[in-house]
């Protein structure tokens, strides 16, 4: 374990020395960076407040007139804090990071996750039709655009449901205690890959809609 570079207090597992308040250029995990317990369910409003409080104390603006070492520690610790905040603030990034901490990895995005096949097929078909009509200048473009726009709406609703379900995955994990984690890991992985796939699909649809939009 590391000790405070300014006052020697230690061992430290935070970006800020609790004893003298000096910023620390140490590698800590995202939860330690924000000084919160390792739980998947996070109140993001509270997280923002913590982030702001820590920023006030760590930010390089606070050390402009100080020595090189403090300035460097402030820069590195703030960079890490920012990264940690962005990771934990977003539930999807948080879930992925959680798997990473467990040494697990999400599979590649190219395989259609189970349960999404029908949706994917339908969306791809509509996009194909739009693409064709757009390139040949056929008159049905407006009608097809409306269809694809509806697709996007449906996908967003589905994405919303998955994100709500992700919060449930998180809750189950936090309540699980010391029981077998294998089924939880599998469920989390499945949820995250469905979300990733849906997001790619939404982007694809948006891209097509932009292309088809009148200049």
């Amino acid at each position: 374990m590391v000790r405070c570079s300014a006052c020697g207090h230690g061992p430290l597992n935070s970006l800020l020395c609790p004893h003298c308040g000096a910023p620390q250029a140490v590698e800590v995990d995202c939860f330690a960076a924000l000084g919160i317990p390792r739980k998947l369910v996070i109140d993001t409003r509270r997280l923002e407040r913590i982030y702001h409080e820590l920023s006030r104390k760590l930010h390089p603006d606070r050390f402009a007139a100080r020595g090189v070492q403090l300035r460097d520690a402030s820069l590195k610790s703030t960079a890490l804090l920012t990264r940690a905040y962005r990771t934990l603030r977003d539930p999807v990034a948080r879930g992925r990071y959680w798997l990473e901490l467990l040494g697990e990895k999400l599979g590649d995005n190219n395989r259609v996750p189970p349960g999404l096949a029908a949706t994917v097929f339908q969306v791809q078909e509509e996009l194909e039709e739009l693409r064709e009509a757009h390139s040949t200048g056929a008159g049905r473009v407006a009608e097809l655009v409306a269809g694809v726009a509806k697709c996007r709406k449906d996908l967003e609703v589905q994405l919303g449901k998955e994100l709500a379900a992700l919060e449930e995955n998180f809750m189950r994990w936090d309540e699980n205690g010391s029981q077998d984690r294998t089924p939880l890991i599998a469920a989390l992985k499945e949820r995250l890959s469905r979300i990733a796939y849906l997001k790619t699909l939404v982007r694809d649809v948006e891209h097509h809609l932009e292309e088809a939009a009148p200049a």
Binding site: P60, L75, T78, A79, L80, T82, R83, Y85, R86
Partner: peptide, 8 residues
Amino acid sequence: NTTIPTSV
């Protein structure tokens, strides 16, 4: 649009 300072 990532807040700075940041690192990866």
